[in-house]
């Protein structure tokens, strides 16, 4: 009887790393989006200089969500290529 402990440990490690990475990036995107909304509201309320970072934050959110979308695409590739 040969138990593939290596494969099990590898599965555990890889899936832990990928999960944490994807969720962290997604959370950062969510955070950027929330900050942008806050900046917009502040700008609408007339706060000086508050609206400036909105574009940067939106771009950061887009990068984060694009990275997550790429992970989803890789997942579909893994399913289809099996």
């Amino acid at each position: 009887m040969e138990i593939k402990w290596g494969a099990l440990a590898g599965t555990a490690g890889v899936s832990f790393g990928i999960t944490v990475a994807v969720v962290a990036v997604f959370a950062l995107g969510s955070l950027a989006l929330a900050r942008r909304d806050a900046a917009r509201e502040a700008a609408a309320a007339g706060g000086p200089g508050q609206g400036a970072g909105g574009g940067v934050l939106a771009a950061a959110a887009a990068v984060c969500f694009a990275a997550c979308a790429a992970a989803v695409g890789y997942g579909i590739y893994l399913i289809a290529a099996r």
């Binding site: 599965t11 899936s15 832990f16 990928i18 999960t19 997942g75």
Partner: peptide
């Protein structure tokens, strides 16, 4: 998702 895909990819 990660565990399912990683495990079937690694033959476990």
């Amino acid at each position: 998702t990660s565990v399912i895909l990683a495990s079937s990819h690694m033959g476990f």
